[in-house]
Design a protein around this nucleic acid. Structure first.
Lengths: 301, 301
DNA sequence: ACATGAACATGAGAAATCTTCATGTATTTT
DNA sequence: AAAATACATGAAGATTTCTCATGTTCATGT
């Protein structure tokens, strides 16, 4: 024996409108239909839900219990229906992002702030932890947007370009590398390299330089925050390679030097990956636009 | 477009059992039926609930929202179903009582304590506030048991006798009425009468003595608690009429005297009114039995 | 590349359920 | 007591849901 929401709606309507006939009218059905339904419900449940001694029929003790459940359950379901309607009209939706690019937190926050002002009903969230397998997660609708600099040909996935950047060395002014005009793989052999704590396949310095050249840095240590990396570099306890625009934070400070990777400057492109189906959604288009205009500001600095 | 619980159950089952075929089996239906249902649901909602790119199909973003609702709603409903089953087996039920007899709180509490030990799943409550219209409320299933000493012929309502008692005067030993062997209506003309704060039609002293004799006491004041009444009586600021068994609290105290109403001692009978339908329920029968055995103890004191 | 199996979709008819209509009965009101 | 209100009921029709048989798609092993 299974209840259905229809039954809860009926219980609530009869209670609220004080009687079967009125409730039936509110529910766009005949009094007879409701009567049959209530009878069926009571037969199934084996419990009298209404007292029929008095004429406008009233809830029995058991019926009152059912009403309480109805009053907790129905708003929940109606909320969902409303949400789906809003989803159809494009006002609401989900925007869960994952960053394969660790430094991107910095410039993404202002974008998120702006976005939430315009689209308050979109469920925005940054999903950490699954950065390793972000693209499959995108395909499975576990997330909705991935910031990545490694576009992969994938059916149903769109890579929207955001901006170009140069992975750039940052070192202490005391460091011998400060003497060089550009940096090559060999230069890392006797350096301590500081990176974000992610796999090598997601670190530009490895994918673009060290791994192809089969060079290992003398030491490799990890730090979570950009500020911490700068601090370590500043005290010459290691060097790091970060996107050029991250360097704006230390621009003009005499303790630091920045050098391009060379001899030809390495250029990479950052993308926002979305599912084809979502890319047309207004809020998603808006978010992409916001990200690009933020990227322009970044380049200006 | 309306959701039904069936849809929520489906969403949950597909998620939990990882796939349509397995879910269908758990729900005792064919895979085909479930496929149709999901299609219908998606058509109605206008939203894709599942991602079919991967083979065991998975919930989409919208589907995950729906799952969250399902996981909040379904336990609620299943709890109700369980409750109704328990109701049928007689283990659970509601026992909301109303006392027309104000002094009865005293002896009822131990009964309630005992009862709750044996029937932990019965929803026991004392409903105050509607004591004035307790019997109609009983009929309307707003309460389930009424303690009353005024049986009324009413179809569907059963008055179960509990015990007999004598409305008895209690006065200060200093009070002139202490000299009398029994008390008549006339004796109240120059007395302050202290009663519980309820209507006269529910006070024995009025219904049995004063109203028929058309006697007004010199003054009439009200007190909520039996202990307060005794205190006022003890300091000779008034007299009161209470059931004889209430007097056990002051027995042996030389400040007080108790006197029967006379010349023939007035006897009343206390009843527990229930609906016919409920009287057969095991827990209700047990409660009545407990009350009667408590009443016997009362009489022994 | 091809067979195979697993998982889901689909069409048509059968079965179950829900509605309506017409009417009956009980209660409340006038 | 009549009229009005409120709910119940039986039967027929409409709708919804399910099942069966079969088709499509995708991944896997040979």
């Amino acid at each position: 024996m299974y209840f259905e929401l229809r039954h809860l709606r009926t219980i609530r309507a009869i209670h609220e409108h004080g009687g079967l006939a009125r409730a039936a009218e509110m529910m766009n059905m005949t009094q007879s239909a409701l009567s049959h339904q209530v009878k069926g419900l009571e037969d199934q449940a084996g419990v009298e839900l209404f007292v029929r001694r008095s004429k406008p029929m009233r809830l029995s003790a058991a019926g009152q219990r059912m009403l309480r459940v109805a009053e907790r359950v129905l708003p929940e379901v109606e909320g969902l229906e409303e949400e789906f309607r809003a989803l159809l009209s494009g006002k609401t939706g989900r925007l869960h992002l994952t960053l394969e690019c660790h430094a991107c937190f910095d410039w993404l926050f202002p974008v998120l702030e702006q976005f939430r002002k315009v689209w308050p009903d979109i469920d925005v969230d940054i999903r950490a932890g699954l950065a390793f397998d972000a693209l499959p997660a995108l395909d499975r609708e576990e997330v909705d947007l991935v910031i990545s600099s490694n576009p992969v040909e994938m059916p149903g996935i769109l890579f929207n370009p955001l901006f170009d950047y140069h992975p750039t060395l940052v070192a202490s002014a005391q460091n011998p590398l400060a003497e060089k005009a550009y940096i090559t793989a060999e230069d890392f052999r006797d350096q301590t390299l500081i990176t974000y704590p992610v796999g090598r396949e997601r670190l530009d310095i490895f994918t673009e330089l060290l791994t192809p050249a089969r060079v290992e840095p003398r030491q490799h240590r990890q730090a979570d925050l950009t500020a911490v990396i700068f601090m370590l570099v500043g005290s010459n306890r290691g060097v790091s390679v970060l996107p050029d625009w991250v360097m704006r934070e230390i621009r003009g400070k005499p303790d630091y030097v920045t050098r391009p990777l060379g001899p030809q400057t390495v250029t990479k492109r950052m993308y926002a990956a979305t599912r084809n189906a979502d890319a047309t959604q207004p809020f998603m288009a808006h978010f992409l636009r916001l990200m690009r205009s933020e990227a322009v500001k970044l380049q200006r600095d």
